[in-house]
């Protein structure tokens, strides 16, 4: 039961990461109290709902930096961040390069296949 509701919450984040989501908003979607929700979400997915939201935004930003012509600022707002400065700082800390540097070092064409080969997935117990 909890598992299903957590999955609903995660899917909600997946679909609305670009909105100004709050913890109350997400936990209400899944029918939990905020405190209880953080604890269960973390147990299930090894990160807090906020960390998961940030992760989704950064992954999407990487994708747009590679594949789109949007400016870094446009990408920042498109994926749900409200300040370019905090987006750039966070991106650099998580990814290792600044957004513009990441774009510079990512080939434009053709889009790279985004998959993890089976032997690595098996070894690490990934989905």
């Amino acid at each position: 039961m909890n598992h299903e509701r957590l999955h609903i919450a995660r899917t909600f984040i997946d679909h609305h990461y670009d909105m100004p989501l709050t913890l109350e908003h997400i936990s209400r979607e899944a029918g939990f109290s905020p405190y209880h929700f953080i604890r269960l979400f973390r147990l299930a997915y090894k990160r807090t709902p906020h960390q998961y939201l940030i992760h989704q935004r950064i992954e999407k930003a990487k994708e747009l930096l590679r594949a789109s012509d949007l400016s870094v600022q446009e990408i920042c707002y498109t994926v749900g961040f409200e300040s370019l400065g905090s987006f750039s700082t966070l991106f650099h800390r998580v990814v290792g390069l600044s957004p513009s540097s990441y774009r510079k070092w990512s080939p434009k064409q053709p889009p790279p296949p985004q998959y993890i080969p089976l032997c690595y997935r098996i070894k690490r117990g990934l989905d």
Partner: peptide, 24 residues
Amino acid sequence: NEALRFYTEKLGFEVRADITNGDF
């Protein structure tokens, strides 16, 4: 992260695949 900086900014390599699944 440090390896990515080395391979791109120093050696001039390109990022080919970059996806995160869980903590991997």
